[in-house]
Amino acid sequence: METDILKPKRKFSLVRALREDSAFQGIALISPTAIYMLILIILPMILVAVLSFMTRGTYGNVVYKFNFQNYVRLIDPIYLRILLYSLGVGLATMVFTILIGYPLAYFIARSPVRKRSLYLFLILLPFWTNFIIRIYAWIMILRTQGLLNTVLLNLGLIKVPLDILYTPAAVLIGMVYEFLPFMVLPLYTSLEKIENAQLEAAADLGARPLRAFLRVTLPLSVPGMIAGSILVFIPAMGMFVVPDLMGGAKTVLVGNVIRNQFLTSRDWPFGAAASMVLMILTLAFTLYYTRKAGFGEELLV
């Protein structure tokens, strides 16, 4: 006790804290990320949340008067239909990216090690081009006098050009194309981690290749599939560029509604409310999905 009193109280020293205080070191290490998250994610989200309870002024300005009017407006069959439709498109995108992405990821994971990085590079290559430009490329391919129809007509496979562009099918093609790498990469990570000895053990215990796949490979790749699904589903729900450009005026998703509120109708509070609802629904779905099927650390990759 005596020594405690006699000991002069040391002043706080940044250098000493960085060197000796493990709690301070932890805070110091995490602060760049924390500041980044605060400024770019948490503050904007609070802003949107606050905004969603305000009202639109006559000239598109925001009137700061608290009310639930925007959420009441959202309880409308039109919006409900758009929401359900978006959910359907998001789920369809997810399912198709799994169906196409799984064999692709499996193929890469089973390739010789030296070739794998080349294949992964090819998967990522499209990202070097602007997203809008790639969507226009798809428009060129799919339109009535486009590449696809020209080829099919010349081959004599069809008599009348197919009307794909500006249909829900075109939107789905664009979405699946855009989000495929987000499914392939986590799936690959999952599949690549499966030791060959696991498959040998399955064969050794009497499993033919198909059963070995169903009982060993498939279950072990579920974490990757979940991670991929989240990476695809969340942005797919909010996507508005693809339906805008490839779906024509016929296909309206939640993303378009929100975008229109902010840019066209200049009704920021209503757009903010729609954003909040979309976010909460997506979050609920994702939580349910991960709880149900287990959460993979692949999401962190």
């Binding site: 000895a197 040998e200 064969a203 009497g206």
Partner: peptide
């Protein structure tokens, strides 16, 4: 003859247990 048709079984060095 593939492994699944042989009347032998293996204990692997890494055990190769099915983690799931």
């Amino acid at each position: 003859t593939p492994p699944y048709l042989r009347t032998v079984n293996t204990v692997f060095q890494s055990y190769a247990l099915f983690q799931h």
